[in-house]
């Protein structure tokens, strides 16, 4: 799997890439609240409608629980909540994007999947230094599509630190 960061460096590109440094890369874009995000299409395994999960006890709030993906137990994360924007009230119109990240298969609950974006790697702009906002270390770049700014997410960074178990509360 390649990360958006890898692609930004222009070291790799998609099959349809031009020569030189302007390689095209593909992303899946989706909406969480008012914001458009995008992740590397290579990380995406499938996209499915929301189904009820089984809650894992004593976990971070943004971990909605686990569901059965053809025999595999897959944890589902609420991206809205992960960004500190509160829990999503999931309905059947919400979407779970199943991705592979750091050798794990996980699901991301988002409001809706928007598009498949094919962009030149040189169109990806760095995220400006921000004062303090939504934990911007997960953000690996910005793309402009028409009028819309799309934020590239680095799943590796987002899930690099496995969710803590809140061990203090369950002192053994």
């Amino acid at each position: 799997m390649r990360s958006a960061q890898d692609m930004m460096s222009g070291s790799q590109g998609n099959a349809q890439g031009h020569e030189h440094s302007t390689k095209t890369v593909q992303f899946i874009s989706f909406r969480v609240g008012e914001q458009e995000f995008a992740i590397d299409i290579m990380a995406v395994r499938e996209i499915k409608g929301w189904t009820d999960t089984t809650t894992l006890p004593n976990q971070e709030e943004y971990l909605l629980g686990v569901l059965n993906l053809r025999g595999t137990i897959v944890p589902i994360y609420d991206l809205r909540c992960r960004f500190g924007l509160g829990l999503t009230v999931a309905t059947r119109s919400h979407v779970v994007i199943i991705v592979s990240v750091l050798d794990r298969t996980i699901g991301l609950l988002v409001d809706a999947v928007s598009d498949i974006l094919t962009v030149n790697s040189n169109e990806i702009r760095p995220v400006p230094e921000m004062e303090k906002s939504v934990s911007n270390e997960f953000l690996s770049g910005l793309i402009t599509i028409g009028e819309t700014m799309v934020v590239l997410l680095s799943l590796e960074t987002l899930f690099a630190q496995r969710p803590s178990e809140d061990a203090s509360a369950v002192a053994a």
């Binding site: 899946i28 299409i41 290579m42 995406v44 395994r45 499938e46 996209i47 499915k48 409608g49 929301w50 189904t51 009820d52 999960t53 809650t55 971070e60 709030e61 909605l64 609420d78 809205r80 909540c81 500190g84 924007l85 509160g86 829990l87 999503t88 009230v89 999931a90 309905t91 059947r92 119109s93 979407v95 999947v113 498949i116 809140d166 509360a169």
Partner: peptide, 28 residues
Amino acid sequence: SKPALLDDQASQPHSDVDDGALPRLAVG
């Protein structure tokens, strides 16, 4: 254990949704 919730909908995350996957777009 979480920081203050910004969204007042937060207290009821699992709304009653029928099971049954609703595939919208299959990728990969």
